[in-house]
Amino acid sequence: MKKEQFDYRVFYEEVGKENGWNFDKLQVKTEGIGWEFYQEVLKNVRKSDCLLDLGCGSGEQLTKIATSLFLMVGIDLSHSMIEKARKPSQKNVKFFQMSSEQLQFPNDFFDIVTSRHAPFSAKEVAGVLKEAGIFMTQQVSEADKINLKKAFGRGQALESQDGQLKDDYVRDLEEAGFTSVQTYEYDAAEYYQRPEDLLFLLKYTPIIPKFGEYPDDLNRFEDFVAAHQTEKGIVTNSKRFLIVAKK
C-alpha cells in the first residue's frame, strides 16, 4: 500500500489564513534553550546590511529586528502568510510571495540570509549572498517532540534518523561553496501550562500531520496529557540545530 503523503504547502496556506505564524499567546515554559535565533542574527549584522529571510511566515519575528538593518526582505511560499505580513509592514521591510528554490533577486545582493524552520536551497542562497556574506538557519531536529510523535504513532520525521537533516544541509552548503560551516544543537524541555496550549500547537503546526482527523486522536491526546502532566506543566521537548555558514 502506498504511504499517504502530507501536503505541507496546503497546510501552511491554511495556517496563514487563520493564524499567520504567531504563537506568542501560548502559555509555555522552556528550560535549556541554547539561543534565540533572531538575537543570534543580530550579533552578525550591521546597520548598513541588507537581509533576506526565507520562509518568513507572517513576519512577526522579522519586523522585531527591522530597525537594526538598512533593508529586510522576507519571502514565503504561502500567499496568505505574505498578505498578513504586509499589513503592519515597516518602511524598510518588504515581503514577497516566492519559492526559496528559485530566488528572484540579483546575484551578490544580500549581506546576510536567514531561514528559521523553513527549507532552503544552498545553491540559491550562495547566489544571492555577497562574498564573505553569512547564512544562518535554525531547523527542527528529527527528535523534536519525540514523546508526542510516539504517543500518536505518527509525526513529522518520526521515521528519520536524528541528525540526518543537519548533515544533509552541511553537505549541501559545503558543495555550494561556503568556506566555513559551523553547527550547534540544543534539546530543551517544554512545559505547556494548559491542554489548550498544546492543542493550539498541534492544530497550527505539522508535528502530527492531520491532527484531529484520525478517530482516536482526541483519546490519544487526553492519554498523553495524563501521562506527561508534571508540576511544571505538560512536558515534551524542543530539539533544534543552528547552522552558521560563511561564503
Rank of each mutant, 00 (worst) to 15 (best):
E190T: 12
V235F: 04
R9L: 12
F152H: 03
V93K: 10
Y184R: 15
E222F: 10
A157M: 13
V73C: 10
I234V: 05
L69I: 13
A85L: 06
S115K: 02
I112Q: 06
F152C: 08
I65R: 03
F200E: 00
L62I: 03
T30W: 12
Q61T: 11
A132S: 14
M136I: 08
S160R: 15
E83W: 00
N22Y: 08
F23G: 06
F120I: 08
I208T: 07
V125S: 04
F120W: 05
I207K: 01
R116V: 07
E36S: 12
P119L: 11
L198V: 00
Q90F: 12
S115N: 01
Q39K: 13
L158Y: 01
H228G: 02
G34Q: 09
V28S: 06
G127H: 14
S68C: 13
F110C: 00
Q97G: 06
D7N: 15
L77K: 13
L198R: 06
Y184I: 00
D167W: 11
V45R: 00
P88I: 01
R46L: 09
L129V: 08
D144F: 02
W35A: 02
K2M: 11
G133H: 00
D172I: 02
Q164R: 13
C50Y: 12
D53A: 01
V93A: 12
Y8I: 13
I146G: 01
F211W: 14
Q97R: 12
D168R: 13
Y169Q: 15
Q193F: 04
K247H: 07
S58Q: 05
K43F: 04
Q161N: 10
A151M: 11
S89T: 15
Y12A: 03
A118M: 05
V45A: 04
F96S: 09
A118K: 01
L218H: 09
K210A: 14
E222S: 10
E131K: 14
E18I: 11
V140C: 10
K84N: 09
Q5N: 06
A188D: 02
V15Q: 10
E60L: 09
K246I: 15
G32K: 14
A226S: 15
K232Q: 14
V125N: 10
L52S: 05
V41M: 03
I208C: 02
I112H: 00
A188Q: 08
D76E: 10
F224V: 03
Y12D: 10
Q164Y: 07
L51R: 03
T114D: 09
K239E: 09
T236K: 04
A226Y: 07
F37I: 06
S141L: 10
N44V: 09
F110Y: 00
T230P: 00
Q27P: 00
E190G: 07
R220L: 15
G153Q: 03
P209Y: 00
T63S: 14
E13C: 02
Q90M: 13
S80I: 01
Y192H: 11
I234Q: 05
E131G: 10
E190W: 12
T114P: 06
